[in-house]
Amino acid sequence: MSGLEDLYREIILDHYRTPRNRGKLETPPAHKVEGFNPLCGDEITVYVDTDGDRVTDVRIDGQGCSISQASASMMTNAIKGRSFAEISDLTRAFKSMMSIHENELGGDDGREPEPGSEESVPADEVKLGDLEALRGVVKFPVRIKCATLAWNTLAQAIDEARADDGAPTGSS
């Protein structure tokens, strides 16, 4: 099947079959946000524990296709223990790989684009690691929303965590 191997790389199928960091965290202290893809009915719940400026733990619950589940699973590996700034860079880089660019972010998920902070690293310099395997998704435009569902939900969870901590949310 031409083309499908690009979409369904082995590592994606592996994360789909054995998702990492699946489950729930106790709320509170964890922040919990649900994300929906109204197109296909996928539902994802992201739980994050934070310590003021980093994500100390994360869990994913819900159901979805291989792309949304694998993206969520890889995301949890990539962000655990990372600072909000690092996660924001990673998210921007991931979305850029999905051909969603900063100035389009507002259009994609209704959120304001992050103001460029001094530490923010250009998208093409961020190491995506395993997440690179999702690059093939761009060739299947309807699936981009599957790949970004967990990331948009995570961004919302982090915003809520920061708001609760009284820290600036990063979006103006």
């Binding site: 979409l7 369904y8 296909c40 979805g64 296709c65 291989s66 589940q69 699936r143 599957c146």
Partner: peptide, 21 residues
Amino acid sequence: VHPHDLSQVLDQHNVCVRPGH
């Protein structure tokens, strides 16, 4: 096989079905 993935594979066969709710 999630319906979304199933429909994607079917499309490679030019078989049009609809995934979703």
